[in-house]
Deep mutational scan, measured.
Amino acid sequence: MAAAAAAGAGPEMVRGQVFDVGPRYTNLSYIGEGAYGMVCSAYDNVNKVRVAIKKISPFEHQTYCQRTLREIKILLRFRHENIIGINDIIRAPTIEQMKDVYIVQDLMETDLYKLLKTQHLSNDHICYFLYQILRGLKYIHSANVLHRDLKPSNLLLNTTCDLKICDFGLARVADPDHDHTGFLTEYVATRWYRAPEIMLNSKGYTKSIDIWSVGCILAEMLSNRPIFPGKHYLDQLNHILGILGSPSQEDLNCIINLKARNYLLSLPHKNKVPWNRLFPNADSKALDLLDKMLTFNPHKRIEVEQALAHPYLEQYYDPSDEPIAEAPFKFDMELDDLPKEKLKELIFEETARFQPGYRS
């Protein structure tokens, strides 16, 4: 834990890192770190609560700039109880001085990944967590956004079992017609939660990839272990087919990539493993919904509104309290091709509203 900075004593240090967030945020305490930044909790002297502050230093890398800009653009436009918001952003007053960006968010005690390492969940908890994931996802999908990296560590939890989806750095506007060349190379989302079509096709992607990830998360809540822990690309596919069985001819016809289709045709026939054999203690309604989410063919996979209306979630289902976005989200430009200098300018502009004396 960093010592509390005395008023006016300059930035606090946390594990050798400068955290320049005073005077409003003090009493910093280390939480963890990701690929390009550290997260601390801090005391907000204005709202009198502890908050989470993520320090991001992305400006050396085009990919990190892209992810940072995506996350900020999306989260500043989203407003939903099951999606983490941005409360404040701290950065230098000029673009030349801006080396880091500090993002202030609600402090959540833990995440689903940490929880599943230590606790076996009751059916009631599984049901409530799944409902909140789908409630947040309904809003995301209504904005025409794909999260693309749903996994237990991106689901934040607090002691009252509130759940918030975080990390929109890989999110995209849904565009089933656009052929994202190089899709697989830039697709760094965790393999275990990846839909089979991501490994088999490169053309376009749809909201059904997020539903697949939610199915993987439900299976993990039922058993405290990942359902498809593939060691590499082909191993991942083999794990999936080992449980779902061989795809039907109709399902194979959806695979545009001939090499991928021929690979699947070359494999020995596998039978589907019954879900109640894998999860003998699970609620039968939970397994019915799991089956509809972990469907090989993305066109037959359940959609988020149908999933919310499934009998497993009937005690929570309330369409009048499951809000959607006001308007579909649009990125003005494809960020993939922009140089990091341009992305830095866009991050600077996007964060201006939090600067003292800002006038829109």
Rank of each mutant, 00 (worst) to 15 (best):
A2K: 00
A7N: 08
A7V: 05
G8M: 01
G10M: 09
G10L: 12
M13H: 09
M13T: 14
R15I: 13
R15V: 08
R15F: 08
G16N: 02
Q17S: 08
V18I: 10
D20V: 13
G22N: 12
S29A: 03
M38P: 15
D44K: 08
N45R: 10
N47Y: 15
N47L: 14
V49Q: 09
V49L: 14
T63I: 12
C65D: 06
Q66F: 09
T68C: 09
L76K: 06
L76E: 03
R77W: 11
I86V: 00
I89S: 10
I89V: 13
A92D: 13
P93E: 09
T94K: 11
I95R: 04
E96Q: 09
Q97W: 11
M98C: 08
M98N: 02
K99V: 02
D100E: 14
Y102K: 13
Q105M: 14
D106H: 05
D111I: 00
L112V: 11
L112C: 07
K114Q: 11
K117Y: 07
Q119V: 03
H120V: 06
N123E: 08
N123S: 07
H125M: 01
I126A: 06
Y128G: 00
Y128V: 02
F129Y: 14
Y131M: 01
I133L: 12
L134G: 05
R135A: 05
G136H: 01
K138Q: 10
Y139T: 07
H141T: 06
N144Y: 15
H147M: 02
D149K: 04
L150D: 06
L150Y: 03
K151C: 10
P152R: 09
N154R: 08
L155W: 00
L156D: 08
L157C: 03
L157W: 08
N158P: 01
T160E: 05
C161I: 06
C161L: 04
K164Y: 08
G169W: 01
G169L: 00
G169P: 02
L170E: 04
R172T: 00
D175T: 07
H178N: 14
H180C: 05
H180R: 00
T181M: 09
F183T: 03
T185D: 04
E186K: 13
V188E: 05
V188K: 04
A189W: 03
A189Q: 09
R191N: 08
R191L: 14
R194Q: 13
P196E: 06
E197D: 15
M199Q: 04
L200V: 11
L200D: 05
K207S: 13
I211L: 06
W212P: 10
W212I: 08
V214K: 06
G215P: 06
I217Q: 04
I217H: 08
L218A: 14
L218M: 15
E220I: 06
R225Q: 05
P226K: 01
F228V: 00
G230T: 00
Y233Q: 01
Y233K: 08
L234S: 10
Q236K: 12
Q236C: 06
N238C: 10
I240D: 03
I240Q: 10
G242D: 13
G242M: 11
I243E: 01
L244D: 01
G245S: 11
S246T: 06
D251H: 04
L252V: 03
N253W: 04
C254P: 01
I256W: 11
I256H: 09
L258F: 04
R261Q: 13
R261G: 09
R261T: 08
R261A: 07
L265T: 06
L265G: 03
P268S: 13
H269G: 06
H269K: 07
H269T: 09
N276D: 09
R277N: 07
P280V: 03
D283L: 03
D283A: 11
S284C: 07
K285T: 08
K285I: 15
K285R: 10
L287S: 08
D291M: 04
R301W: 00
I302G: 04
I302S: 00
L308V: 10
P311C: 01
P311Q: 07
E314S: 04
Y316W: 02
Y316E: 06
Y316R: 00
Y316I: 04
P319A: 08
A325I: 03
A327Y: 00
P328Y: 03
F329N: 09
F329E: 00
F329L: 15
F331E: 08
D332M: 09
E334L: 08
D337Y: 14
D337N: 14
P339D: 10
L343W: 05
I347P: 06
F348T: 12
E350V: 14
P356M: 03
S360C: 10
S360L: 13
S360M: 11
